[in-house]
């Protein structure tokens, strides 16, 4: 038996049509690339798939077996046949959306997505929302913080129904550099970043960071702490980073 390697060329089918891909590619990305509409909350192509929101369900036939699976973390393989809109997929996705509605009923993103698939209300008990309100526990913020920003200031804590996305002890995330990447990827916009009086506040991580004033234009731009971290990692001197990107570009 030969073992395929990541990146090997494979051929597979979606809804009966044949496509080429690479072994190990995310099936969800392939589906979207070829124009199939599949919903998701926890997927972002920049970071590793996680499989928590259970929305990107499809049916995959591999050999004789056909089963429902999430597509984001399904590696494309030789000979698989994919079906995106079967009766089972629709039925389970409806229940998954109802569960999302009972967990985060106030989230506009969740409500809009559910409505798109015809789910307007949930038969399940609506959970009392704590201050994590609109968080769907997709983990994108911590994956970005870990895999892209490399500071891992936040993480999942607890387990089961006590699972939360938090800074340690839900106190100031001391490792957070205030880059805001988490805010950018959050599918439900629930992290909260504000700037006032020369301070960047990231509410959810209890992080307040003073902003650097540009030595050229006098405008405030990035948190100083973040610039110091850049300097440490890249070796660029701190003085060079005291100028905002706009002014730096104009110098070049």
């Amino acid at each position: 038996m030969s073992h395929p390697k990541k990146g090997d060329k494979v051929t597979f089918k979606i809804e009966g049509r044949t496509y080429d891909g690479r072994y190990g590619d995310s099936l969800l990305e392939q589906l979207r690339k070829h124009g199939y509409e599949v919903p998701s909350l926890c997927y972002h192509e920049a970071v590793s798939p996680y499989g928590s929101c259970r929305l990107c369900l499809v049916e995959v036939k591999k050999g004789k077996k056909q089963k429902v699976t999430t597509s984001c973390n399904y590696p494309v393989q030789e000979g698989i046949e994919v079906f995106v809109n079967t009766e089972k997929v629709r039925r389970y996705r409806k229940v998954v959306l109802q569960l999302h509605l009972s967990k985060t009923p106030k989230s506009k993103a969740v409500r809009d997505l559910a409505a798109e698939y015809g789910v307007m209300e949930t038969p399940y008990e609506v959970q009392e929302q704590d201050k994590d309100n609109d968080c769907v526990l997709c983990g994108l913020c911590s994956r970005v913080c870990d895999e892209i920003v490399h500071v891992s200031a936040i993480s999942f804590t607890g387990r089961g129904q006590n699972k939360r996305m938090q800074s340690p002890y839900d106190e100031t995330a001391e490792a957070c550099i205030g880059c805001g990447a988490c805010v950018y990827v959050c599918p439900t916009d629930c992290i909260g970043l504000q700037e006032s009086d020369g301070i960047r506040h990231i509410e959810k991580w209890h992080r307040d960071l003073p902003l650097q004033t540009c030595e050229k234009c006098g405008k405030q731009f990035f948190p100083t702490f973040m610039l110091m971290e850049f300097s440490k990692r890249t070796g660029i001197s701190k003085d060079q980073l005291n100028i905002c990107p706009a002014c730096r570009n104009s110098v070049v």
């Binding site: 911590s142 870990d146 500071v151 891992s152 993480s155 999942f156 804590t157 800074s167 340690p168 995330a173």
Partner: peptide, 8 residues
């Protein structure tokens, strides 16, 4: 290792 990981 990150403190967040230990806490997690």
């Amino acid at each position: 290792i990150p403190f967040s990981k230990v806490y997690s």
